[in-house]
Design a protein around this nucleic acid. Structure first.
Length: 423
RNA sequence: AGAGAGGUGGCCGAGUGGUCGAAGGCGCACGCCUGGAAAGUGUGUAUACACCAAAAGUGUAUCGAGGGUUCGAAUCCCUUCCUCUCUGCCA
């Protein structure tokens, strides 16, 4: 959520930047400013009314104390209209504040200067590419065939016990999953991220805090009986650890990493590219989350990108980095870099990580602040990234490391797996 | 799940209808004291919103949350959430 003050101060710049998202914010922002004015005017009147009422009450109290009950009772009558006014103004204020909130929720984050205008993923900018694309034998097949051939993942079994998109990992497939999780967590903690284990269900307030609610209501599984949501990413519980917190400048940077399963309804997703591990309702991910001082958040973002790069280098997977264009940029993000691994057998790039700076957009909802040197409370910047998402990394490994003699295990994973080949 | 107790500022804790945003203590910040430190001592120490060009200042709201009674609520009533103790169940 953008800050009202910023909208008031830099309205034109915001409208201009939003165009990169193909989003004409003009009328929305005009409505916001109009409602904001109404809200403030109402608050001023309400405060004055309440001040009058408070003053009268104090006087009445004083009169009763000094035994002047008759005068006191006479004064009571005066408070009647004030009470009616205050009630009405209070209701008006409430309505205006809520309408304002609804409008603010519709406004996405302002894209960073580096973000290019664009409409679809085709407009994303490739900013980095590394790794050799392996030349596979003519018999090379996509991961879903490999998973079946080596009995690593059983999609049908998942369908039986839950439904489509809930795979069952078996034997070495399961072990490879666990190895990847441990390996990612180790790399992240070595880089200074503190490992956290967090709940996999969150309440409504947490959903609002990071922006999944109300924007993506239908994308999360909702447990109606207890009004809890299954997390779509560890970003939600981990970032919300800092909800309603006021930090000191010395507390920066805050760096967390967490492994969690992620649950996504993926309502509306369909088509040819959802086979196998490409799109699931439940998948595993190791996330990194940072809370930063506004002055250093973009350095931190670059640091996160470098960190993820190093992991992919170690895994020896061919990858590229995209800077998302305005049209592909997430609602809450100011700047996002997507990492994609090339799947040779599918002959396409698979997104495996998304690293974003949210600037104050989440912090504003989270009320995540820090005390600056003047003792004022300022919103912090939040960032997060996948480091990494498991299924497509697994797909990439299975597909790119397949040989006639079986699937080789990347060297760095061998100690975690306890085997160096799947055959 | 049942019974009971309770939720007050960064923390502890007082406060059962009226100058209470809230005593006192701890912690923290700054100053004094000291050769330096400790002790001692003085001052300060919540958040949001509104008014103001801004600072200063002023106003309003907030004692888990929401609603009610009252001229006036931390204090009384209702609802709800959470914590603790006991019982039950259970990985």
């Amino acid at each position: 959520m953008l800050q009202l003050q910023a909208i008031r101060d830099t309205k034109e710049e915001i409208i201009e930047a939003m165009k990169k998202r193909n989003f004409d914010a003009t009328s929305l922002i005009d409505n916001i400013l109009l409602l904001d004015e109404k809200r403030r005017a109402t608050q001023t009147r309400l405060d004055a009314t309440l001040a009058d009422a408070n003053r009268l009450s104090k006087e009445i109290g004083g009169l009763f104390k000094s035994g002047k009950a008759v005068e006191a009772n006479a004064m009571k009558a005066q408070t009647g209209t004030l009470k009616v006014d205050a009630k009405r103004l209070g209701e008006e204020l409430e309505v205006a504040a809520q309408e304002l909130q609804q409008l603010l929720f519709q406004l996405p984050n302002v894209p960073n200067n580096l973000v290019r205008a664009g409409t679809t993923e085709a407009d994303n900018e490739e900013v980095f590419r590394e790794g050799d694309i392996p030349i596979l034998s003519a018999t090379a097949v996509p991961h879903w065939d490999l998973a079946k051939k080596y009995d690593l993942i059983d999609f049908e079994l998942g369908v039986k016990i839950t439904g489509a998109g809930f795979p069952v990992y078996k034997g070495k497939g399961a072990r490879l999953q666990r190895a990847l999780i441990s390996y990612f967590l180790d790399r992240n903690t070595e880089a200074g991220y503190t490992e956290m284990q967090v709940p996999h269900l969150v309440n409504e307030a947490s959903g609002f805090g990071t922006g999944q609610l109300p924007d993506k209501e239908g994308q999360m599984y909702h447990v109606g009986e207890d009004d809890l949501y299954l997390i779509p990413t560890a970003e939600v519980p981990v970032t919300n650890l800092l909800r309603d917190v006021i930090l000191n400048e010395g507390d920066f940077p805050i760096c967390y990493t967490a492994y969690t399963p992620c649950f996504r309804r993926e309502a509306g997703s369909y088509g040819a590219h959802v086979r196998g591990l490409n799109r699931l309702h439940q998948f595993d991910k190791v996330e990194i989350v940072r809370v930063e001082h506004p002055d250093t958040s973009y350095d931190a973002l670059n640091g996160m990108v470098e960190h993820v790069k190093n992991i992919l280098r170690e895994l020896k997977l061919p990858f590229r980095i995209l800077r998302l264009c305005g049209g592909d940029l997430g609602f809450t993000s100011a700047l996002t870099y997507d990492f994609e691994v090339f799947s040779t057998a599918q002959d396409r790039w698979l997104e495996i990580s998304s690293v974003s700076n949210f600037e104050t957009f989440q912090a504003n909802r989270l009320k995540l602040r820090y005390k600056d040197q003047d003792g004022r409370n300022q919103l912090a910047h939040t960032l997060n990234g996948s480091s990494l998402a498991l299924p497509r990394v697994l797909a990439g490994i299975l597909e790119n490391y397949q040989t006639e003699a079986g699937i080789l295990i990347p060297e760095v994973l061998v100690p975690y797996c306890g085997f160096d080949k799947i055959d």
